[in-house]
Computed example of a mutant assay.
Amino acid sequence: MFVVRTSGRSAAVDDDRHAFKLLGRRQFSGLGLARPLTTGVRARAVLELRQNHGRLRFRALVGGEFVPGEGDRIAWRVRCWETVRPAPQQGLLPGALLPGLPAGLDHAARTGLWADLNAGALPAGQLVIDRAGYHQECSPALFTTAVELLVHVLLAGAFGSPVEPVIRSWVATGRLPDVTGWS
């Protein structure tokens, strides 16, 4: 597990967390234009972000998988949680989160994918968001950022780039780094 902390923001990345698996049948999916790629491997990761706003501490956990493919399309899917009362689970950062991606946050997760999907900058393959966790005080904006950052983490893993600079950049600045060099 990789963790970066400051007083205002924290981020943690790990390989997987089955406790946050999204089992609901409800999902959003689609196809997007993609760049053809030359090589790559399957990558799975879970990312948790924490950001302080005054006295509020917002947290978002998302996870997924990218599998490189051939052609000029990327197939994407965001699974959603349908359980009424999930039990709290330990997140990557200190404290418990509720597993799931409830209404409102599912839209934020899709928004996090659309920027890269609409630009046609992602490589061909399959991308699925199938892990999520939230705190009762949640921020849709932080979920959007978490999904965008997760895509960077997954692509870095798939194409052998280091993840640490991407995570450190967000923790230090609160903004996503401009990363476009995927094969």
Score class of each variant (00 low, 15 high):
residue 46 V to E: 06
residue 41 V to D: 09
residue 57 R to N: 12
residue 27 Q to V: 01
residue 79 R to E: 06
residue 35 R to F: 02
residue 75 A to D: 08
residue 64 G to A: 05
residue 39 T to G: 06
residue 54 G to S: 06
residue 91 G to H: 03
residue 92 L to P: 07
residue 56 L to W: 07
residue 29 S to E: 15
residue 77 R to K: 15
residue 70 E to A: 12
residue 36 P to I: 02
residue 75 A to K: 09
residue 39 T to D: 15
residue 93 L to M: 06
residue 41 V to E: 15
residue 78 V to L: 10
residue 71 G to P: 09
residue 90 Q to K: 14
residue 55 R to M: 07
residue 38 T to V: 11
residue 66 F to T: 06
residue 42 R to A: 08
residue 64 G to P: 04
residue 33 L to R: 15
residue 49 L to E: 08
residue 81 W to P: 00
residue 78 V to E: 05
residue 86 P to E: 07
residue 59 R to T: 11
residue 76 W to T: 03
residue 36 P to D: 03
residue 74 I to L: 15
residue 62 V to K: 09
residue 43 A to P: 02
residue 56 L to K: 12
residue 61 L to Y: 08
residue 62 V to P: 08
residue 74 I to N: 02
residue 92 L to T: 08
residue 86 P to F: 03
residue 65 E to Q: 15
residue 79 R to V: 04
residue 58 F to I: 01
residue 38 T to H: 11
residue 91 G to P: 04
residue 38 T to F: 07
residue 26 R to V: 11
residue 31 L to C: 00
residue 36 P to S: 10
residue 34 A to T: 06
residue 75 A to P: 00
residue 47 L to N: 07
residue 34 A to H: 03
residue 88 P to M: 00
residue 92 L to C: 06
residue 54 G to T: 02
residue 84 V to I: 13
residue 65 E to F: 01
residue 78 V to H: 09
residue 54 G to P: 03
residue 44 R to A: 13
residue 42 R to E: 15
residue 59 R to Y: 01
residue 27 Q to F: 08
residue 37 L to H: 01
residue 34 A to C: 04
residue 60 A to I: 04
residue 25 R to M: 09
residue 70 E to P: 00
residue 55 R to C: 00
residue 33 L to M: 10
residue 64 G to F: 01
residue 75 A to C: 00
residue 41 V to N: 10
residue 90 Q to D: 12
residue 43 A to N: 10
residue 85 R to H: 13
residue 62 V to Q: 09
residue 49 L to S: 10
residue 26 R to Q: 11
residue 31 L to D: 13
residue 93 L to K: 05
residue 75 A to Q: 14
residue 82 E to N: 11
residue 86 P to R: 09
residue 93 L to H: 03
residue 33 L to Y: 07
residue 35 R to L: 12
residue 61 L to Q: 10
residue 29 S to N: 11
residue 94 P to A: 02
residue 37 L to D: 01
residue 64 G to L: 04
residue 72 D to A: 14
residue 52 N to E: 14
residue 56 L to Y: 09
residue 70 E to T: 13
residue 58 F to Q: 09
residue 26 R to C: 00
residue 55 R to I: 03
residue 80 C to K: 13
residue 86 P to T: 05
residue 94 P to H: 01
residue 38 T to M: 09
residue 53 H to L: 13
residue 44 R to D: 13
residue 87 A to Y: 05
residue 43 A to S: 15
residue 89 Q to V: 05
residue 84 V to R: 14
residue 54 G to R: 02
residue 46 V to G: 06
residue 54 G to H: 03
residue 31 L to Q: 12
residue 37 L to G: 12
residue 85 R to S: 12
residue 54 G to V: 02
residue 35 R to M: 09
residue 30 G to V: 11
residue 94 P to L: 05
residue 36 P to M: 03
residue 89 Q to G: 01
residue 94 P to R: 02
residue 31 L to G: 04
residue 72 D to R: 15
residue 49 L to P: 11
residue 91 G to K: 03
residue 90 Q to R: 14
residue 67 V to M: 08
residue 48 E to V: 05
residue 52 N to T: 15
residue 75 A to W: 05
residue 44 R to T: 15
residue 70 E to G: 04
residue 85 R to N: 10
residue 74 I to S: 02
residue 28 F to W: 13
residue 58 F to K: 03
residue 86 P to S: 07
